[in-house]
Amino acid sequence: MNTIRSISQFHKLVSLPEPLHPLVSVIDLAKITYTQSEIWKGFVNRFYCVALKHDVKGKLKYGHQYYDYDKGILSFTAPNQVQYLDLQNIECGNGWLLIFHPDFLLRHNLANAIHQYGFFSYTVNEALHLSAEEEQDLLMVLHNIERECKHIDKHTQEIIISQIELLLNYPQRFYERQFITRKNNNHHLLEKFEQLLNDHYNSPAEKPQGLLTVQNIAGLMNISPNYLSDL
């Protein structure tokens, strides 16, 4: 499996100059041009990605399934998630991408706390949709991080990490709002969940796989385990 190990390597792969900071970068998607590299046919990143996007056309593949890359407006990926990108049918569109390496969080509480943000395991078709006001809140934080990357001193890490924490706390609120406003759709998901349980335990057929797990059920429902748990 191909590996994108550094922020600098990623910049080169999307035809951007060297990042202002070696461990964190805020990227204007309109300035991206993907290089024709074999790496996109199957790769993992060694860093976190938060994408705030508009009009992005193309397909991104997780595991064995393709997802529309233009669904939703805010999406998250964690390090070491396997991805496949179809360069034949992609347009970068407009928006912003925050990428930061786990090493940037060392000796900070966020290094451990970041695993509590379940949306880093949400698949792209479960991306977060934002209101105009919510989007402006996130853009303000992204621009603060971008500006701080230009001033690397002993305060830089603490200031940027505080902004990253704020950026991650906003989606916690926004996802709760999305779950509420999509109550009817989520109700159908829960009905499907109950039906799968009933079918499993009421079926006379032998069940070699044993007890159903959240991972099993989420796979049958075509959603991620974390998204199912948060419902």
Rank of each mutant, 00 (worst) to 15 (best):
P17D: 08
P17W: 09
P17S: 13
E18L: 09
E18V: 04
E18D: 13
P19M: 11
L20R: 11
H21Q: 06
H21W: 02
P22Y: 04
P22V: 06
P22H: 09
P22F: 12
L23G: 02
V24P: 00
S25V: 08
S25H: 12
S25C: 14
V26K: 01
V26N: 00
V26P: 00
V26L: 07
I27Y: 06
I27T: 09
I27P: 06
D28W: 03
L29S: 11
L29Q: 08
L29F: 08
L29H: 07
A30T: 14
K31I: 00
K31D: 10
I32P: 01
I32W: 08
T33A: 12
T33Y: 07
T33G: 04
Y34N: 10
T35G: 00
Q36V: 02
S37K: 06
S37N: 14
S37L: 12
I39C: 07
W40Q: 07
W40R: 07
K41E: 10
G42V: 05
G42Q: 14
G42M: 11
G42E: 13
F43N: 11
F43K: 05
F43I: 03
F43M: 12
V44W: 00
V44E: 06
V44F: 02
N45F: 05
N45P: 02
R46C: 15
R46Q: 15
F47D: 02
Y48S: 10
Y48V: 08
C49R: 09
C49H: 04
V50T: 13
V50G: 03
V50H: 01
A51N: 10
L52N: 00
K53H: 04
H54S: 13
H54P: 01
H54W: 10
D55G: 05
V56K: 13
K57V: 15
K57H: 10
K57E: 13
G58I: 07
G58K: 11
G58Y: 05
G58W: 08
K59I: 10
L60V: 05
K61C: 12
Y62R: 14
Y62P: 00
Y62E: 14
G63H: 11
G63Y: 07
G63F: 14
G63A: 13
H64L: 15
H64R: 14
Q65I: 15
Y67N: 09
D68Q: 12
Y69N: 11
Y69V: 06
D70I: 00
D70N: 15
K71R: 10
K71Q: 04
G72Q: 02
G72R: 01
I73K: 04
L74Y: 03
L74W: 00
L74S: 04
S75P: 00
S75T: 10
S75Q: 01
F76K: 00
F76G: 02
T77R: 03
T77W: 02
T77A: 12
T77D: 05
A78W: 01
A78E: 12
P79V: 12
P79K: 02
P79H: 04
N80S: 11
N80I: 00
Q81V: 14
Q81F: 08
Q81A: 13
V82P: 06
V82T: 09
